[in-house]
Design a binder for these strands. Structure first.
Lengths: 204, 204
DNA sequence: GTCTATATACAGATAGAC
DNA sequence: GTCTATCTGTATATAGAC
């Protein structure tokens, strides 16, 4: 009886937390129900009692992560300093992207996207799509207020967000030995914002 | 005796091919030695005789894929049509990126980058780093010939390549239900090349 | 060197006591 | 509802025949 909520919700939370942690750390196949039960400090049967089977537990765990995938809030009140706004956005976005948590969910959703398309879709909607939508709104406002000339705000949003990733994200993604310094990243971000501003400037 | 090359090299190749296929398809943990042996049409013991254990076989398989990760050749002879060159490059790059093969290696290297850092590093060097180096050379030439004003060719290369990925790559990466049409992708690529050309134009 | 058969460990999932 | 104990399949890896 998975639906019965008279079961101890604390244990449920313990299980879900442990599962989320282990699945995102090690992946689906490499994570065992025994390990989850042990880490959650409950018996294995309790895990099954709460979540039915491994698949359902996996879906619940990743779903939770997707839900809690918090938005970057982009203040769109004062647009008088586009460079400052975009630079701040770029910095925050990149910091979020390369955070251990976000990267782990990203990787597992991408990796399991064939086996669990609905999970990957969930992540895409909660993460990249949602953010790019927000940024597109920002681009739209820049255009309306004639701060930048942006015919297609959606394109501009994807261009900007992808550009910002740069070498830094790829290096983190593949865990390369050498990583970029903060200064290098900062320089890259500024150069990218400048490129973007020049490319979408009104006075061509 | 793994080093002894008097063993049947045909069988070795069969094993390696099967392993590469299965590992990239399903990941490390989800792929069994039994399955590899069966697919390679040899006995399991032969697999062990050739590669020692699962780890070594995995490394050999992915290494092979990285080696064969073929470069996009970028012709740098006639630079008179920068828009045409960049558009062609963008199209070829994106096509390569979202190809089933490239995507599979990309995903598994990213996913296993913590467990197998040397494999991920190998891929990074053979893939993203090598390509961005080539593109940086192109950017450098654009600058030398005053076709574009590019102070930092390395930055420009990463900016261009990342930008080109756009929404399309992310949607393929997460296997989303809705995928972009060819027309949409083509429009995005042209918009991105235009943005890049305006941003790095000589006459600001 | 390659095969079949087997040892050993651990996986997901269930049965039954309390 | 939660626990301990167990069933059953399958994994990695090895032994021994040819």
């Amino acid at each position: 009886m998975v639906r019965n909520r008279s079961k101890n919700p604390e244990k449920r939370k313990q299980i879900l937390d442990a599962a989320t942690r282990l699945f995102t750390d090690q992946g689906y196949a490499a994570t065992s129900m025994d390990h989850i039960a042990k880490k959650a400090d409950v018996s294995k049967q309790t895990v099954y009692s709460h979540f039915g089977n491994k698949d359902e537990l996996f879906m619940a765990a990743i779903e939770q992560k997707c839900d809690s995938y918090h938005m970057l809030d982009i203040s769109m009140d004062d647009l008088s300093d586009p460079k400052g706004i975009l630079l701040t956005l770029a910095q925050r976005f990149l910091t979020m992207l390369i955070s251990k948590e976000a990267l782990a969910v990203h990787k597992i959703c991408a990796f399991e996207s064939k086996s669990y398309p609905n999970i990957a879709e969930l992540f895409f909607k909660a993460g990249p799509e949602r953010l790019s939508g927000k940024v597109a709104q920002l681009m739209s406002k820049f255009n309306e207020q004639k701060i930048l000339k942006i015919d297609n705000p959606k394109f501009a949003a994807w261009q900007f967000l992808n550009m910002v990733k740069g070498e830094n994200f790829v290096r983190v993604e593949f865990n390369t030995d050498k990583q970029l310094t903060e200064e290098e990243v900062e320089q890259y971000l500024e150069a990218s914002v400048d490129l973007f501003l020049r490319g979408y400037a009104w006075q061509g």
